[in-house]
Amino acid sequence: MPRVISMEGDLMESSTIETNELTKDFINKRGIIRRESRTTRALDQVKLQIKEHEIFGLIGESGSGKTTLGLALLKLMDVDSGQIIFNGNNIMKYTGRQLFGFREKTQMIFQDPYSSLNPVISVYKSIVTPLRVFHKELKEEEVLNKAIETIEMVGLTPAEQFLNKFPNQLSGGQRQRIGIARAVINNPDFIIADEPVSMLDVSLRADILNILLDLKRKFGKSMMFISHDIAVTQYVSDRIAVMHLGQLVEVAKSDRIINNPMHPYTKSLIDSIPVPDPKKKWNLDESKGQISEYVNEGKNECSYANKCPFVMDNCRKERPKFREVEKDHLVACYLYE
């Protein structure tokens, strides 16, 4: 049974996927004579919960571990410790038949429309793969009908013009739609969209975002939307989590994250987003800032401590725990203890 948690008074919602203290280290060996090994903690005790019928946004800069988290959730990458609970079952040890069953329920939409479709496989063959693997009982005609229905659902009409095409005959936007069709054709419970619009032209992004919103509205899909673009993320997401160097620092409803960011990192992130309004020109006085490179080496400290203007002694002694500062607004920062 899915674990049931209380949300918004008497409304009860269950979670599709949740993680507990998920941790993953990457070890880089370098040096030829003196072997040094440097540990980078890509996931640092990540704890989150994605509910049914929810689009959960995950934002963070490159190297923050958001893609690693996505891969870990779909069991495309092993983690070092922690738990992943999917539909109430701990999937950490899944292999073989159990893993196959899990695969049937999950899918992914990729960032790069050019390399997420095999150049030598036709659109039709590409998108029906999940059906053929998980539903061997379907007749050829049923598969075809489902394919046509799905292709038209992602806005490619008439479908027969596309079935036969190869990826190099399609534009970036069309490829991305095919990628979405492949992800949803088998009606999975949980989809991860990893930067699905960042490689598309600005004018094509909106339609892809609207397709994702439609999928949620019509079919109640749970989705994790990974992006570095906050404006795009808040457009599709119900809730947003902010990730910094492997740690989740803040989770709240989208509009709360945007309008009332609490963690100092979230604040600087929201502040840096360009707004299409020339009256909001940037203040040039803050240009003195130095950039330096930090990695999460797995110490028990706040990952933002090295850059935070409000850093306190506590921040380096022990990493701050998530705390519900206002309703459904979790922040991991000692400023709010």
Binding site: V202, S203, L204, R205, A206, D207, I208, L209, N210, I230, A231, V232, Q234, Y235, I258, I270, I273, V275, P276, D277, P278
Partner: peptide
């Protein structure tokens, strides 16, 4: 350009990007 875009392309481009400030629904250019 941003307060009173004239060319339909500029208008459509501005209408296609999600904004943090307004709750608007965005529309791609077909």
């Amino acid at each position: 350009i941003f307060d009173s875009p004239q060319h339909p392309y500029t208008k459509a481009l501005l209408a296609s990007i999600p904004s943090l400030e307004q709750e608007k629904s965005v529309k791609g250019i077909r």
